[in-house]
Design a protein around this nucleic acid. Structure first.
Length: 415
DNA sequence: GCGGATCAC
DNA sequence: TATGGTGATCCGC
């Protein structure tokens, strides 16, 4: 095992270096991923950032090892339990037994409340910031371009994505991948303006629509469908046409019985496309079965004028742990191994214990909790330094205030 | 209670 | 040269 893993690693060390911006994303189908990974690795290697990533990766491997051994203990305790036909009241086998009961009960409960009567649409603008910048500067049309800086990219247009460039990638790496890449500084005033235009369209179909960010919204179009006697598919087409008419920008849409599924669907035919998941049980169950766990999201509603929607889910780390410790990579496997997850992870974890729950919740109408904002924060990254007095100076309230003011001024004047 | 990890955009 | 900022939740000390 150690041997089979180390020898290809030694020949192609870049394969073991995974960052958030090397996984799948719309518009990156034809990309030579091996080449992108190699370049990302070569550019990153030896940096402080890289060292920190390696440290974190080692920590995760440790977590996976612990989990594996706990998992093995449960399995062996469980099989001995069946061999002896004895009900053990304490220890691992009984905890597994309890978890099985809890998981089964939860699944039955959710199945009973399944609601396929609503029609939800998730609308997602295509490469939003980049598309807005191209509107105001048509010379950018057809050329690889990214909104951001040499430090960080917010959005890349589809021409740039062909090179493996995408959001959350540092600009200097993107430049290595495509030396002709054009950088445009972000201008949030402009994006807010166009976002407002799209929201004017959304309001026509659902006055209580929920915005997840400047470029994403959820609409409940159930009533519109019944009143006009049309399908979700037709409404989605109308909305996309309306958005294009108002803004000159394209977007993609997903139509499904609940928001979680609608969000997954809007990504399927991106850009400038849509996907409909019909409101029938078989279609929904089949769809979820093959769904990669990385797509699982959890929603909680924020009451800012029914506007904001907070999303959590399974990210890079949780995906890694579930795959390598438990062999889980689809939502169907989450349901199959629900009792293991229940036994191995503590109650109500954002990613782990919630994952079987939210996978099941995707079968139902999601009913997000309404919550109030609990904090407000401000942070910034310093350039690397070992200068202690400089760091203390940065913490001085007056210096902090100056820094915040400088940033506010920069935001309001760049246009 | 708090710091660190995780996640989304 | 160079790897973000904001808001939130949960776990393990």
């Amino acid at each position: 095992m150690a041997k089979t893993e180390t020898s290809p690693d030694a020949a192609r060390p870049w394969q073991s270096y995974h960052t958030v911006y090397t996984n799948a994303k719309a518009g990156m189908d034809g990309v030579d991923k091996e080449k992108v990974q190699r370049i990302v690795y070569e550019v990153s290697k030896g940096s402080k950032f890289f060292e920190n990533e390696e440290r974190k990766e080692a920590f995760i491997r440790q977590k996976i090892e612990n989990m594996r051994s706990r998992c093995a203990k449960i399995t062996s305790a469980d099989s001995s339990h069946y061999r002896t036909h004895k009900t053990v009241k304490s220890g691992l086998s009984s905890s597994k037994y309890i978890c099985e009961t809890v998981a089964e009960k939860r699944i039955v409960e959710l199945e009973a409340t399944r609601d396929l009567s609503r029609v939800w649409i998730h609308v997602d603008m295509d490469a939003f910031y980049a598309a807005v910048e191209t509107l105001s500067n048509p010379l950018l049309e057809g050329k690889p371009m990214a909104v951001g800086s040499m430090s960080m990219i917010s959005t890349a247009n589809y021409e740039a994505r062909k090179f493996g460039i995408r959001a959350a990638m540092p600009g200097f790496i993107a430049h290595k991948l495509c030396p002709e890449l054009i950088f445009v500084r972000p201008d949030f005033k402009k994006y807010t303006h166009y976002s407002d235009l799209t929201r004017k369209v959304f309001r026509r179909y659902d006055p209580n629509f929920m915005a997840a960010s400047l470029d994403e919204a959820y609409l409940d179009v159930t009533e519109v469908c019944t009143e006009k006697g049309t399908s979700g598919e037709e409404v989605a087409k109308e909305i996309r046409a309306g958005v294009f008419e108002e803004t000159g920008l394209t977007c993609s849409a997903g139509v499904a019985p609940n928001r979680l599924l609608a969000k997954v669907c809007s990504d399927i035919n991106k850009p400038n496309g849509q996907f409909v998941l019909p409101n029938n049980r078989m279609a929904v169950v089949t769809f979820i079965s093959s769904l990669p766990i990385r797509k699982v999201n959890i929603l909680t509603e924020k009451p800012h004028g029914q506007l904001y929607l907070q999303i959590g889910g399974i990210g890079k780390v949780t995906e890694h742990i579930l795959r390598d410790a438990l062999g889980i990579s689809t939502c169907e496997e989450i349901l199959q191994k629900a009792s293991y997850i229940c036994a191995l992870f503590s109650h109500s974890t954002s990613g782990l214990e919630l994952s079987p729950v939210s996978a099941q919740d995707m079968l139902l109408t999601d009913t997000p909790e309404v919550r109030l904002r609990k904090s407000i924060s401000n942070e910034r990254t310093f350039s690397a330094t070992g200068d202690e007095t400089l760091l203390y100076r940065k913490l001085d309230p007056f210096e902090v205030l100056k820094s915040i003011q400088a940033r506010t001024l920069k935001k309001s004047t760049n246009s």
